[in-house]
Amino acid sequence: MADIHVEEFYKDVAIALVQLYGSFPRRVNVFVEDIAGPDEPDEFGLHSKRHMACFSALLWLQEEGLLRYVDTIRQDALDQAVLTQKAFVRLSSPTLEHQALPRESVEREALPDSVQKDLSTHIHRIRQALKSGHSGRISEAVQTAFFEDTPG
């Protein structure tokens, strides 16, 4: 069983990537509260550890070359964020498990090619994992999208 902060990290990353993919190529503000939930700073104006962990996950995505942004809005959001070409291409590409499925599969054969392609992408897998709410599926989908070997 993974540490809870690592599971939250994968969920935060997944939500942020889905938000940015959904608005690509437009630049948008990515608010920590939209990802981690509401936060009430303490009497000193400091955010909770959960809020700061989410904010740090967003900064990490930039450091790893998966998104760009113009500035931060305090510790509440990224201003004018957009996926990098590297992240967009990876999220749009088919997963290795879908590439390995035979084209003659009955379920796949019944669907139009464009739908088959959409259903085989990393972004679709991440969305499905988020929809399930299962932390193991979420972390596996993010890991597969960015840490598995690419074909080629």
Rank of each mutant, 00 (worst) to 15 (best):
M1I: 14
M1R: 15
A2D: 03
A2K: 06
D3E: 06
D3V: 00
H5S: 13
V6E: 06
V6W: 05
E8V: 06
Y10N: 12
K11I: 14
K11R: 15
D12S: 12
V13T: 02
V13E: 00
V13M: 02
I15D: 04
A16Y: 02
A16W: 04
L17N: 08
Q19M: 13
P25S: 07
P25D: 09
R26P: 01
R27Y: 10
V28R: 10
V28F: 04
V28Y: 07
V28D: 09
N29P: 04
V30H: 02
V30Y: 02
V30S: 01
E33H: 03
E33P: 00
D34M: 09
D34E: 12
D34V: 06
A36V: 13
P38G: 05
P38N: 08
P38M: 08
P38C: 02
D39H: 05
D39P: 00
P41E: 01
P41R: 04
D42L: 11
E43P: 03
E43C: 06
L46C: 09
S48H: 02
S48G: 05
R50L: 12
H51W: 03
H51F: 01
M52T: 04
A53Q: 14
A53S: 15
A53L: 14
C54V: 03
F55K: 03
A57M: 07
L58Q: 01
L59I: 01
L59G: 01
L59D: 00
L59S: 00
W60H: 12
W60L: 11
W60D: 11
W60T: 11
W60P: 00
W60C: 06
Q62C: 09
Q62S: 12
Q62F: 08
E63T: 06
E64C: 08
E64Y: 08
R68A: 12
Y69D: 07
V70Q: 13
V70Y: 11
R74Y: 09
Q75M: 10
D76C: 05
D76M: 07
L78H: 00
D79V: 02
Q80W: 08
A81L: 03
A81S: 06
A81P: 01
A81C: 05
V82Y: 03
V82Q: 10
V82T: 09
L83Q: 01
L83A: 01
L83T: 03
Q85V: 13
K86A: 09
K86H: 08
A87W: 02
F88C: 15
R90D: 06
S93L: 12
T95S: 02
Q99Y: 04
Q99G: 07
L101D: 00
L101K: 07
P102R: 12
P102Y: 08
P102F: 10
R103A: 15
S105I: 04
S105C: 10
V106N: 11
E107R: 02
E107W: 05
E109N: 06
L111V: 06
L111R: 11
S114W: 15
V115I: 08
Q116I: 14
S120D: 11
H122K: 09
H124I: 07
H124C: 12
I126G: 03
R127A: 13
Q128P: 00
A129Q: 15
L130C: 01
L130Y: 10
L130F: 03
S132C: 13
G133L: 05
G133A: 05
H134I: 13
H134V: 13
G136V: 08
R137G: 12
R137W: 11
I138D: 09
A141N: 10
Q143I: 15
A145I: 02
A145S: 02
D149C: 11
T150D: 00
T150K: 03
